[in-house]
């Protein structure tokens, strides 16, 4: 494909201007928002336990403990975290497997935070793995018991497990978990899970918000780590997304499907075809996960050095787009070459 065609196509960024910062969106925190805001499942689980079991105070205490541990992990308070780890371990020791609901519910509350502690503060991927795999069993029990929203925990744990393996350099294992969960989220069926995701899904917005989180989590991670594969032919991404034999979920944003197809084409070495598809579709819209837009944009700029043809103001606009629209930090832009080399 001629570089000037691409340069013409990229003129769409000529008018790009970052949106002014939005006022805090109070609706985002409202309980009826459809946006996937990545949380609250543990609290929902607590409420479920409280409904099903006596000892409300004890269970609330355990929930509160896990939140405290999570918080100090997030702020990298390594030593303080050990204090809460000890408290959590005291509670583990009291659990009785015969009281199955309590056993699995409380482990579902503690295990993810313990996994996070070992992953994030200790970089002990093996121990993190142990907690995560245990957690998947716990969640299955809860789902079987009737806590269907546990499916939200399950999908996230698949993603987290994939991330832990990825960071440990075990790309095959990572891709396996990532593929299973992506197939499930993208499809309209139940795949290897207990029931189709649509049974708990609140809305199309929520699905697309979840998909954005998962796509971005995997794609950005893969592109930033050359060991997982070359930028444009990333073995890891191919292993996750290639040849999915599924019926795609109707609620999925069509442009995201297009972007995925383009990403795969380019990754499989059919760059020309992939870029032609890009020129025929509308993937540079906010509904498409940032990581996919970034990937395709990079491919366009690189193809026959099309980026070199762009006038300076347009280059600047594209950098602005990267920062403001795709949410990349300067260091990410630097890590995620080669776009940086051009723009």
């Amino acid at each position: 494909m001629n570089a000037s065609i691409i340069a013409d196509y990229l003129k769409q960024f000529e008018d790009y201007a970052p949106e002014p910062p939005k006022e805090a969106d109070s609706s985002a925190a409202s309980s009826n928002s459809n946006k996937f805001d990545n949380g609250h499942i543990f609290y929902a689980l607590l409420e479920y336990i409280i409904r099903e079991l006596p000892e409300r105070e004890k269970h609330t205490y355990c929930y509160s403990l896990s939140q405290k541990l999570l918080r100090v992990c997030q702020s990298k308070e390594r030593n303080v975290a050990t204090y809460f780890v000890n408290k959590v371990e005291e509670q583990y020791a009291l659990l009785n497997e015969e009281q199955a609901l309590e056993y699995h519910a409380l482990r579902s509350i503690f295990n993810p935070v313990m996994a996070y502690y070992h992953y994030y503060l200790q970089h002990d991927y093996e121990r993190a793995e142990g907690y995560m795999l245990g957690l998947l069993e716990n969640i299955d029990y809860l789902i079987g018991h009737g806590f269907l929203d546990g499916m939200y925990m399950k999908i996230e744990q698949y993603l987290n497990t994939a991330r832990v393996y990825f960071n440990a350099g075990q790309y095959d294992k990572s891709a396996r978990y990532a593929r299973v969960v992506m197939q499930y989220l993208l499809s309209s069926g139940k795949e290897t899970f207990e029931f189709p995701f649509s049974e708990v899904l609140r809305s199309a917005n929520q699905l697309n918000s979840i998909l954005a989180l998962f796509f971005n989590g995997l794609i950005f991670k893969a592109l930033a780590k050359p060991e997982s594969g070359a930028f444009f032919r990333n073995d890891f991404l191919l292993a996750v997304f290639r040849e999915m034999d599924i019926s795609f979920n109707e609620m999925m944003e069509p442009a995201t499907r297009d972007a995925l197809a383009i990403l795969l084409r380019i990754s499989e070495g059919e760059e020309e075809e992939g870029l032609e598809m890009a020129l025929d579709t509308q993937i540079f819209n906010e509904k498409v996960p940032a990581s996919m837009r970034y990937f395709v944009l990079t491919a366009l700029l690189h193809h026959n050095n099309a980026g070199d043809l762009l006038p300076e103001p347009l280059k600047n606009n594209i950098r602005l787009y990267q920062e403001k629209e795709l949410g990349l930090t300067a260091s990410q832009i630097n890590v995620l070459r080669p776009l940086n080399a051009i723009v």
């Binding site: 925190a29 309980s31 009826n32 928002s33 459809n34 946006k35 996937f36 805001d37 990545n38 949380g39 609250h40 499942i41 543990f42 609290y43 929902a44 409420e47 939140q67 999570l70 918080r71 100090v72 997030q74 702020s75 990298k76 308070e77 303080v80 993810p112 996070y116 929203d149 939200y152 925990m153 996230e156 744990q157 708990v200 609140r202 929520q206 979840i210």
Partner: peptide, 18 residues
């Protein structure tokens, strides 16, 4: 260090119980 607000969630979706 962290935010003392009750929710520092890392999982799930929007719930009617937040």
């Amino acid at each position: 260090g962290g935010n003392l607000a009750g929710c520092t969630c890392n999982n799930g979706s929007n719930y009617t119980t937040k």
